[in-house]
Design a protein around this nucleic acid. Structure first.
Length: 414
RNA sequence: CGGAGCGUAGUAUAGUGGUAGUAUACGUGCUUUGGGAGCACGCGGUCCGAGUUCGAUUCUCGGCGCUCCGACCA
């Protein structure tokens, strides 16, 4: 892509209405536009990163047997009354139609949508297990949106729902999802700072597991066991019944029992929990077993916050000049810069022909400004062609200082 | 939802009860070309409403918006 044709305008100054680092950098580099508190629009660069994140997750969810769907964001009041959450879900966006006066919900999650669909599809143990997932915009009327992309009122979420004939089947699937999630965060480039964390289960279940990425910008406090790479959310110690079960004598590692844990701030980027028959019961989602007996379907829920992940990656991967994208999610692999108009044309065409994702800065501006923009935008490999490079290409990794000259043939192998 | 702070060009900031300034961005022209280049000219602004006043961007009240702290966070 030619940068002269890319809709993006970088900004020198930090926006005055953002304190959070992820929002400052993403706005300055032209990835997102702030619409209002907790609501951000994705501009072309931002959308590319979002799509890259989604693709990594999608692949893994399909490997886990998931069928991708797209449920409705607009939902009706009655389903939320069946589940009992019309009154109890505190951040629910509710509103009435101006014409019909009917009440509606903007979906903050989709149990109320997927379960009625499954009631139509699931009748026998032969239909189980079944797995569905989607990427969708969720709406939550947060009392206080904050920390840029980390806690918004509208955000994209991957939600995955599993349906099982038995709790045992749910349990084993739940465990395999833990592994799938770990692989996802590894691929996203934040594996070394993301921890499987025991957490409370809210109103759904006794406990849940979160995937927490270490960052001072996070809103949770977790206790990490360095030998197991496991962690416990501080909230577990604050909940009396959980404390009895998991941490009678203060913070202990949930997997090895070790006591000297490291306390860190973190942001929850993923959450998995067993909801069992919490929804199948009120909605009457049942199946018949081999003996013709009816049982409630057992369910598991598995979420990943996409916007939050975008913000979290920026929080953990940046320097004072800008963003440093992990290659797996970067909007482009190469950022090609020329010092004089047309110098990079040939190499750009070759890279495109060879199938690389490359942003070609063909703008008629000073070289220094291009370098500054390249640092801000954060594409992993910077390629420069100029009179100085004498027919070769200067290569610099975004997270390294050194530059090296290569022939095109070498670059192709990157 | 409680508390604090802040709303001035696209962006970031200064200032004032009487013609609103600077930087950057943008437009035009020339020069320049390895770390946000230079010169000249130009375009563009006081969140909304009410009040006080001869006169309000400034003072008062209300609203709306944004940020931060806290509470909350299925």
């Amino acid at each position: 892509m030619r940068q002269s044709k890319l809709f993006i305008k970088t900004v020198r100054e930090d926006p005055k209405d953002e304190e959070s680092l992820n929002a400052k950098l993403l706005i300055r580099a032209g990835y997102v536009y702030k619409v209002m508190a907790g609501v951000y629009a994705f501009l072309p660069l931002g959308l590319k990163v979002i799509k890259n994140i989604e693709d990594i997750i999608r692949k893994k969810m399909i490997a886990m047997g998931g069928n991708e769907v797209l449920l409705s964001a607009l939902q009706n009041r009655s389903d939320w009354e069946v589940s009992g959450r019309w009154d109890s879900f505190d951040v629910l966006f509710k509103f009435a139609s101006f014409y019909s006066k009917n009440d509606y919900v903007l979906g903050p999650t989709h149990e109320e949508e997927i379960v009625p669909i499954m009631r139509q599809q699931i009748a026998s143990y032969r239909n189980l297990p079944a797995y569905f997932f989607q990427f969708q915009n969720k709406f939550r009327d947060e009392k206080r949106a904050k920390s840029g992309l980390l806690r918004g009122r509208e955000f994209i979420m991957k939600d995955f729902y599993s349906f099982h004939a038995s709790e045992k089947d749910l349990d084993s699937y739940y465990d395999s999802m833990k592994d799938a999630y770990s692989e996802i965060f590894n691929e996203l480039g934040i594996g070394n700072t993301t921890y499987l964390t025991l957490a409370s289960g809210g109103t759904f279940s006794k406990y849940s597991h979160e995937f927490q990425t270490l960052t001072p910008a996070g809103e949770d406090t977790i206790h990490i066991c360095d030998s197991c790479k496991a962690a416990v959310n501080e909230e577990v110690f604050e909940d009396e019944s959980l404390r009895q079960e998991f941490a009678k004598e203060g913070p202990v590692c949930p997997s090895c029992g070790k006591k000297d844990l490291r306390k860190e701030k973190a942001i929850e980027v993923g959450n998995i929990f067993k909801i069992k028959d919490k929804f199948s019961s009120p909605f009457g989602l049942k199946f018949k077993d081999e003996n013709g007996e009816e049982h409630n379907v057992m369910m598991g829920c598995y979420g990943i916050g996409i916007n939050r992940l975008l913000g979290a990656i920026v929080e953990v991967s940046h320097d004072d000049k800008g963003i440093i994208w992990p290659e797996s999610v970067a909007p482009f692999k190469f950022h090609l810069i020329e010092s004089r108009k047309g110098e990079g044309e040939k190499i750009y065409n070759s890279l495109v022909a060879d199938g690389f994702k490359v942003l070609y800065d063909d703008r008629d501006i000073g070289l220094g400004e291009k370098f500054a923009d390249a640092d801000l935008v954060g594409i992993p490999w910077r390629l420069v062609v100029s009179a100085r490079t004498e027919g070769k290409i200067e290569v610099k990794k975004r997270n390294e200082e050194k530059t090296e000259l290569f022939n095109y043939e070498n670059i192709r192998k990157f």
